[in-house]
């Protein structure tokens, strides 16, 4: 019995790292709080809600609804951009656990990877190059673990399609297309999409995740909703706060990304207080908000013209009476 237990323990100790190495959740660092991270964010119609930070240098004509602790290019916008690049590098370095046949692929109808429409944790790659689409039937992400879709082309979802979680966490789903992303109207999407080529949401898209396009453009059309999932243990320094000044001492999670739903438990260490510097707010020159005075009104012109007209009319009437 003791021998059997030892063998099972050894097998478990070997099996666990093998499973974990299939796909691991990358750290998003400062980008983890952003619903939208972009260089240009376009939003021209009311009704869109972003529950999370919104980062950009060129902002939208219309403010989105929702709660954002950070909006615009203030800290930690620049750091979040670096962290987005680091996360993408991590994803690109992960080996594919399944590679689709060369060419475009519809994830909803493909049967080469396993059960049609159902995906288990792993790193899925297109090749060829090959764009990926999510058809009307949608897909299901089934089981606890990390899902990574490395797409050598564009990512699209058709109208009314859905990505559904079945035991998976939105914190552990990642999309990395090399060309632009377009999500169809009334579709449902899940996960973190890192795509500096641009991300466009047609109308009424529901998205639990993050649109990370630092260096590119994110466009929302109307009635779209992006909600950043709650991955609380991914916060790098629990207990710390503030965008400038000194962060009080707290606990720093180390080891594998604690947002990942499986794998070794993270370790906790105590850190000393650290000072962080604020990203300076750009100083513009003062705006020219005045209107030229000649547009104020034309009351005097109206009075003068009316008086002259009245004088001419009276002269006309008096002459008419004399003639008669």
């Amino acid at each position: 019995m003791v021998i059997v237990t030892m063998v099972m323990t050894m097998l478990a100790s070997f099996a666990s790292p093998l499973i974990a190495s299939a796909a691991t959740t990358p750290s998003l660092g400062s980008a983890a709080t952003y619903g939208i991270l972009s260089s240009t964010y376009t939003n021209t119609t009311a009704g869109t809600t972003i529950n999370g930070d919104v980062g950009f240098t060129t902002g939208p004509a219309l403010l989105p609804g929702g709660t954002h602790n950070n909006y615009g290019s203030g800290s930690p916008y620049a750091t979040a951009g670096s962290d987005q690049a680091n996360a993408l590098s991590n994803i690109n370095n992960q080996a594919c656990t399944f590679t689709f046949a060369p060419g475009a692929i519809d994830l909803a109808t493909d049967t080469t990877h396993g059960t049609i429409g159902v995906y288990t944790p792993g790193v899925y790659c297109t090749s060829g190059p090959g764009a990926a689409s999510i058809g009307t039937a949608g897909i299901i992400l089934s089981g606890i673990g990390t899902y990574i879709f490395k797409i050598d082309g564009a990512l699209t979802s058709v109208a009314n399609s859905a990505v559904t979680l079945q035991g998976a966490s939105a914190c552990d789903v990642f999309w990395a297309p090399t060309q632009a992303t377009t999500l169809g109207a009334d579709s449902t999407f899940v996960g973190t999409n890192i795509d500096a080529s641009g991300i466009t949401l047609e109308s009424n898209v529901g998205w639990k995740g993050q649109a990370l396009a630092f260096g590119g453009t994110v466009t929302t059309v109307v009635d779209d909703t992006i909600t950043v999932p709650s991955c609380t243990s991914q916060t790098p320094i629990p207990g710390g706060s503030g965008t400038a000044g000194t962060i009080s001492g707290g606990c720093l999670w180390t080891g594998p990304n604690p947002c990942s739903s499986y794998g070794p438990q993270p370790q906790k260490i105590q850190i000393a207080p650290v000072a962080i510097a604020a990203v300076p707010v750009p100083v513009a020159t003062l705006p020219n908000t005045g209107l030229p005075p000649d547009t104020k009104n034309n009351t005097s012109s109206v009075i003068i013209i009316s008086s002259l007209s009245a004088l001419l009319l009276i002269t006309y009437i008096v002459r008419g009476r004399k003639i008669s």
């Binding site: 950009f56 240098t57 902002g59 954002h68 909006y71 615009g72 290019s73 203030g74 965008t243 400038a244 707010v281 750009p282 513009a284 705006p287 908000t289 005045g290 209107l291 030229p292 005075p293 547009t295 104020k296 009104n297 034309n298």
Partner: peptide, 29 residues
Amino acid sequence: FNLGPRPGAVGSAVIDGHSGWSHGIPAVF
């Protein structure tokens, strides 16, 4: 001014508006 903090966030949020008249109607500020 969206390159600075939002009103209510730490720092100096800035809001501007026009002054003067147009077609007999005063501008917001």
